[in-house]
Write a protein that binds this DNA or RNA. Structure first.
Lengths: 347, 347
DNA sequence: CTGAAAGCGCTTACAG
DNA sequence: CTGAAAGCGCTTACAG
């Protein structure tokens, strides 16, 4: 009764509050709260009066205030590498669906493969007090997250593991996938096989290289340094790598690529090449079956990756306190033609 | 001094607050606030003491509480159709970049082309008091948003216009794009051209159909009912549409598709067909240049769509109060072969 | 330079 | 069935 109507500074809006509704309906604040939250213990008549006031004023509960009092924000953060990368679309959507089924909203953003930007974004999300975080890490040192995790922010890494901290992670079987893709090429008669991957500071790039090397070693095949190229996925860089591998005195007869962006560029480069070169790509790509030859790939299940990570997160939020663990999601080789080409006649 | 340490209920965490920091540093709350927000008027010595307390406790400002007091949440909502659809990836990312440059976080979600889900999501975002909304609408009646917009939630529609309310919108030139794509096919000698589009309740689907019809009319060509098929983008549905158009006594010799998902299915269907059929697709698709023939498309600029919408939104938030308007982003025809095929010999 | 009080819009824990 | 008071963790507007 003391401080009724001191209007606030120009904010974006000037929305009615529960206090306004209470005043208009001639009831107490708590009664409005009961109606808004469908709590029992309100006579139909009172409820009707409150509801009328709500409708007349266009009241909508401010969940930001609610959240402050309740302690949970019912929101989770998802930090991925690039919202525009089609590989992450299904992962993003899968996380959203799980969040939705738990009544939580999804805040997300791109790290742009920049560790500083990742940290900035993650900490901004912590400051907003998201209940949990799902992170596709760009950096390799996540000790900055320790105080947050200790303070109760559930965190699950996906696609790549956390660096220097012990945390839940859901990963694709990069090593196994690359190994089986390479073995597939070997089985089709190739002995000089190139590998073009992403930057070596990216975990999956290193794992896939390891898988490639393991398969080559298993087959008793040497790996020439010039057959391996790790770097950015910029088309120019990848294109040069292809050209140099094919121009060498002992040119490769097959190539294994480290991810979808590399695959696309390699397909373009090979289309311009005179001699057929076999190709197995990591990650499935749209229309791969319609190219000539169809592109043989090691497909990851991005949706399963996202769903598994989100389910793990909500289990943590529901109190699961077991030790952090890693889940590995299998990959699947899909033969479509490019990986089954025989080596072209040795010069 | 009265209510020092009454520990709260089990929430997710139990983080230190400014009060804790103040107590530990032996200063007032406001002094902590000054240090945390880098406001002037704190002696170096005091600042150091506060900073030490912050570090020791692992304090991080609760932006949720800050936001409640300040009135702006520094977050915007983006509601699109499907986070997994590659068409929306670049749009999503473009919105994120603009938001980021304004210090705002992005909350987003999928409507799954369901008007009820759209409304539910939008209102949840309003309850969180996002400063603004960018919406790719699924529904056709947005009057439910009127109280929110009146209350100050800036809103920009993108890709499709709002229904039954006057609001900013940023759209692709669907009509013009479809018209020029159709005219392109006519110029290459086609007279029986099919159109396979999305569901007629989707604005862009209708506009593209209109563009198709306008071009046909302009060329003095009749349009047989059996040449037009609107419906879901489910592969089965689209496949059937293709088959039926090609089986007719007067089969079409060219097809214009209404979006990327339809295009992909049509490409697959045509690959299995004996006779070449010309194709122009709405939306560019990855690897379109590598197919044989390359797929001629009407490319939309999804990133420009997103960037333009987000910039409009922040201009509104900065006070721009001019009447709602529509911005139309041009499309671009990219000839790659499939749209330049001549009509195959008349039966 | 520093801090106590009031308030942002809700919910919690009580008391009637 | 109903509501006044206190509090969530900050910032605002003052006063010293």
């Amino acid at each position: 009764m003391a401080d009724t109507a001191r209007h606030s500074e120009p904010r974006y809006g000037n929305r009615p509050t529960m206090k306004d509704v209470a005043a208009r309906a001639g009831v107490g604040l708590k009664t409005v709260s009961r109606v808004v939250n469908a709590e029992p213990g309100v006579t139909p008549d009172t409820e009707r009066r409150v509801q009328e006031a709500i409708d007349a004023l266009g009241f909508r509960r401010n969940d930001s205030a609610r959240v402050l009092r309740k302690g949970r924000t019912a929101s989770i953060g998802l930090v991925l590498e690039d919202l525009a990368d089609p590989f992450y679309g299904p992962l993003n959507r899968a996380v959203e669906e799980v969040a939705r089924s738990h009544g939580a909203l999804l805040i997300n953003g791109s790290s742009a493969e920049d560790p500083d930007r990742e940290q900035e974004l993650v900490l901004a999300l912590c400051a907003r007090r998201v209940d949990g975080l799902i992170i596709i890490p760009a950096g390799h040192d996540h000790r900055y997250l320790e105080p947050e995790i200790k303070a109760g922010v559930a965190t699950v890494f996906v696609d790549r593991p956390a660096g220097k901290i012990d945390a839940d992670a859901v990963l694709s079987d990069s090593f196994g996938g690359a190994r089986s893709g390479t073995a597939h090429l070997v089985a089709h008669g190739h002995r000089r096989i190139g590998f073009i991957g992403d930057q070596p500071r990216i975990h999956t790039a290193v794992e896939r290289l390891r898988g490639y090397r393991a398969a080559m070693a298993h087959a008793g095949l040497p790996v020439d340094d010039s057959w391996v190229s790790l770097g950015t996925t910029a088309p120019d860089r990848v294109h040069e790598a292809v050209v140099s591998m094919l121009k060498a005195p002992e040119p490769v007869t097959a190539i294994l690529t480290g991810n979808n962006r590399v695959t696309v560029t390699v397909v373009r480069a090979l289309a311009a090449h005179d001699r057929p070169v076999a190709l197995v790509g990591f990650d499935d790509i749209e229309l791969a079956d319609l190219l000539d030859p169809g592109v043989t790939v090691i497909a990851q299940d991005a949706a399963t990756l996202g769903r598994t990570a989100a389910e793990r997160l909500f289990r943590r939020l529901d109190g699961a306190a077991d030790a952090p663990n890693q889940v590995v999601v299998p990959t699947r080789l899909i033969a479509r033609g490019s990986g089954e080409l025989p080596p072209s006649a040795d010069r």
